[in-house]
Amino acid sequence: MPRLVDHDQRRAELGAAAIRVILREGLAGVTVRGVAAEAGWSTGSLRHYFRNQHELQTYVVQATTDTLRGRVLPRLQRPRTASSVVEGAAMLVEEMLPLDAERREEYALWSAVVEWERQHPPEGGSVTWNEQRALYRLCIGLIRGHEPARELGQATLPHPDAEVELWAALLHTFVDGLASQIMNTPAQVPPDTAAQLLRSLLRAVPGARPVPG
């Protein structure tokens, strides 16, 4: 009897291989030939699943997005003990900064997703951008004393507090720039400096509760 093929498993293997390629070469390296070689397949076998590079990259970007959510969301949701609301918000935001090897990998994957969305703008705007803005909106809302959203998805809509919207936008812009500096000029912006800068910004939010002691 012919051996049964688990197509979902094979697609998962291809997704994992493509993620390894992204980490080495970026999204441009995700070609039919390149991913087939990484997975140990022939290009003919891979074309059984994806007819061209566009189909492959579409699948890989979704697999990468799912991987990022699977890695980052559990960290965002885990219980934390913080000395202040500002410190608690800073600890959440730090999950989006490339402060260690794991988060540097995630930054590289996130950059590939952003590059894909730039080339192929999704309807309704960037999903990754909207999800990140929701996190920053949630953090600023907490600092200003608002009831926290039960789920991150509930923070995707504009907040009724105009200061939350303004400072969420400022925080989003700040974090993107800070992450770029951490990656590109690590000697000038080491992790401890980045942590101090982040907390300085969050303490400047109008209505922020003072740090005890």
Rank of each mutant, 00 (worst) to 15 (best):
R80F: 01
H120N: 15
G34M: 03
A155D: 08
E105G: 12
Y49N: 09
V60D: 04
T156Y: 06
R69M: 14
E25D: 11
A90M: 06
L197H: 09
W129Y: 13
R103K: 14
F50V: 00
I182W: 10
R33H: 03
R69N: 15
D176G: 10
R209M: 12
G44A: 13
T64G: 10
Q132K: 10
P148Q: 05
R51N: 13
G213Y: 03
V32P: 00
G26I: 01
L171E: 08
D192C: 08
V61N: 09
T156H: 11
L56F: 05
P158K: 07
T156P: 00
V21D: 01
A39F: 04
A187Y: 08
E151K: 08
Q119I: 04
I19K: 02
F50P: 10
L97P: 01
G34D: 07
L201Y: 03
E13W: 06
Y136Q: 04
G145D: 05
R209H: 08
E131C: 06
V86T: 09
P148C: 03
L27Y: 06
A37E: 14
I22G: 01
V60Y: 02
W41C: 06
H48A: 09
Y107P: 10
G207P: 02
E165K: 05
G44V: 03
V127G: 13
I19M: 06
R150W: 04
A162I: 09
S42W: 00
M91P: 00
P160K: 09
L170H: 13
D100N: 15
E106G: 12
R133G: 01
H54L: 14
A169V: 02
L201E: 09
T81E: 13
G34I: 01
Q62E: 15
E55A: 14
E117H: 06
L97N: 03
R137V: 00
P148L: 07
N130A: 13
D66R: 01
Q9H: 12
S111T: 14
E38Q: 06
P79F: 04
V61L: 04
L197K: 05
R20A: 08
W116R: 12
L198E: 07
E117L: 06
I22A: 01
E131T: 03
G213I: 00
V211Q: 11
M1D: 14
P148F: 04
H120Y: 15
E95L: 14
I22L: 00
V5L: 13
N130K: 13
A16E: 11
Q196R: 13
W167M: 02
E147D: 10
P74L: 04
I19P: 01
T67R: 15
A39V: 01
L109K: 08
G124K: 12
D192M: 12
R47W: 02
L23P: 01
A18S: 07
L142G: 09
G44R: 14
L157G: 02
A12R: 14
G141V: 00
R118L: 15
T65N: 11
W41K: 05
A208L: 08
L178G: 11
E55P: 06
N130H: 13
G26H: 09
L202D: 08
V205L: 03
S45G: 09
A63N: 11
H159G: 05
